[in-house]
Design a protein around this nucleic acid. Structure first.
Lengths: 354, 354
DNA sequence: CTGAAAGCGCTTACAG
DNA sequence: CTGAAAGCGCTTACAG
């Protein structure tokens, strides 16, 4: 009984009935007062609030959610490669997650997080299960089974939104990848680099890397320059892939003087290889990454990179997931973060004149 | 009515009653069958399961939780400094969060994540609100207001566990910091470094840094060496603090040949300063960090560091939060991750003989 | 403005 | 082994 809180064992739950009794009002009045309903007298509200505080009462989220038909929480599933152990998974997604939590909190929502990798254990029906009002799916483009699963699920489960999905149906939010690729490439061209290679496996088909590559090609074409790519990427993580791509590219094209890597982690691998082969970054060789990862501040030299606006990304994802946004697809603007892996603008030049 | 799913507007929720009707059994039988109760015939169970699948039925988590008096979710609050914007917050906590999510998932629990920094908006009563069965608090030791809040809250709200709390009351899990500090320091001594400085502000009083410092002093004492610390740390992030500490220390003690930094981010700052002043890492100057952050693999040279076992940390935190573990406090073992910021063992030497 | 009552969708004694 | 019923703790029409 909630009338004897001194009972040993499990703590007794204080309910709105307890508050009602103590405040001398009906339970429904307690509910209204605490919900801030305008149809309750300030005087009663104050009394109820005081008693609630005294008793340490808080509305039970399950009960109110059940009754209201809402959950006031957003689910975020982060896809990982089965072979990635968590701490080594891509930190970029945790940075995005952070922004989502913040945006959710600002809208008065809680955030439920699910890390998923194993194919037998994929789930996305948080809405149906009454655990969330919408679901955001982000994460590694490399877990194609998982993406297939969610592509399928998306047909029956609405209020599912994707960040960087490798398919165009469904609702999604993405970086403005084409603009970002062009931005990075023009930045290199402006600084006098001419033989600029692209690093990023494209065989996954349409996707973010392909879009970044497109922007890269566009910018090169503007200046009559030729694209240049690696022919092969090993398995393994992005850093290893970047390393090997740079190895191969430099081997076959010793005249390369810059790299645009489709992600920061690829860029870290490129940087490692360039340094190893005695290349001088940024003077003889420029490098630009993509993602704006905070780890880019600690490498040597710090990595110049293209970063999506995570705050806007988070807001757009929430809006799409909660069905505010009818269209449900959108591009997030990117900006260039200048660090030190690209040399300064030649004296007397301004961006754009080459 | 759930009898007309073709109605436009909000999607109709399929309930256990719908399944029951279709399967020709009572609603309670549906519940039992889906819960895997042994007291339901295999034949009925199969029928129920089939119908549930056909109708796309899933148990409503709010309703079952309300009835069962559980939530099957764990809340994780991540404390940040008010001045830290999310993406720059300490990535270590996201790595720990990842491990917690994984451990939770293995126990069949969902994970609710809350990023908190502003003093007016601190909350930790997820259990009381029926949103979680336990709460784990991790995050920046520097938000002292927040820690004060939770120290207070912990007295009324049980099932609150802390990672690295700056106070000893309450339940907590921590790295074995003293052992870790000694481990790092002995590693440097074994490799021939003799003038080893400690980097890490201690003025926050008892806490993880102080424990690491203790281990550092222990190891030095074993070899008759003198401790050495910076006298002052600026405001700003850990990287800046590490940078300025190294600056001051090197200025006043040009003979320093190694640094043990109480966190990886401090170490990044130290590394930056040493490099800038022309120091040769690792040959003339060794550096060891603490945390095992993945960013340590991309700095140059990659950072040797002491890492807590995150998997064990996550499991211990869960156990303590869910009240399995009566004691509620514990130390997580640490290990040394050798990378390249410390030189190799002198020829003919083995660890321990100096 | 407040109260009495129904009902959100389950689980679990209680019967049989 | 299955069914009928109560009840978890709320919110919200419905009366007054």
């Amino acid at each position: 009984m909630s009338t004897d809180p001194s009972l040993p064992g499990k703590p007794v739950r204080v309910t709105s009935f307890d508050v009602a009794e103590r405040a001398g009002v009906n339970q429904s009045t307690v509910s209204r007062a605490l919900a801030g309903s305008p149809q309750v007298t300030p005087a009663t509200r104050e009394r109820v609030v005081a008693v609630a505080k005294e008793l340490g009462y808080t509305v039970d989220h399950r009960a109110s959610g059940l009754r209201k038909g809402r959950t006031d929480t957003i689910a975020v599933v982060i896809l990982q490669r089965p072979e990635d152990k968590t701490p080594t998974g891509n930190p970029f997604y945790f940075e995005l997650l952070g922004s989502i939590c913040e945006a959710a909190s600002e809208r008065g929502l809680e955030t439920l997080v699910s890390l998923q990798s194993e194919n037998g254990r994929l789930t996305g029906d948080y809405v149906k299960r009454g655990q969330a009002d919408g679901t955001i799916v982000i994460g590694s483009a490399r877990n194609s089974t998982a993406w297939g699963f969610f592509q399928q699920l998306q047909r029956s489960e609405s209020s599912l939104v994707f960040w960087g999905s490798p398919f165009d149906e469904a609702r999604w939010i993405r970086s403005d990848n084409v603009a970002g690729g062009a931005l990075a490439t023009r930045h290199l061209i402006d600084r006098g680099y001419r033989r600029i290679a692209f690093v990023g496996p494209l065989e996954t088909g349409p996707g973010q890397f392909a879009e970044r590559f497109e922007g890269y090609c566009d910018a090169l074409a503007e200046h009559g320059l030729e694209p240049l790519q690696a022919s092969h990427y090993p398995d393994g993580d992005r850093i290893a892939q970047g390393y090997h791509a740079a190895l191969e590219l430099l081997d076959r094209n010793p005249d390369i003087d810059a790299f645009f890597a489709a992600s920061d982690r690829l860029a870290f691998g490129v940087l490692e290889r360039v340094r190893e082969s005695g290349g001088d970054v940024p003077d003889k060789c420029g490098i630009v990454g993509f993602d704006g990862m905070s780890a880019g501040t600690v490498c040597n030299p710090p990595l110049t990179t293209v970063a999506p606006d995570l705050e806007k990304a988070a807001k757009a994802l929430l809006a799409a997931a909660l069905d505010d946004d009818k269209r449900g697809t959108g591009r997030v603007p990117v900006k260039l973060i200048e660090r030190a892996s690209v040399r300064a603008l030649p004296a007397g030049k301004s961006p754009g004149d080459c």
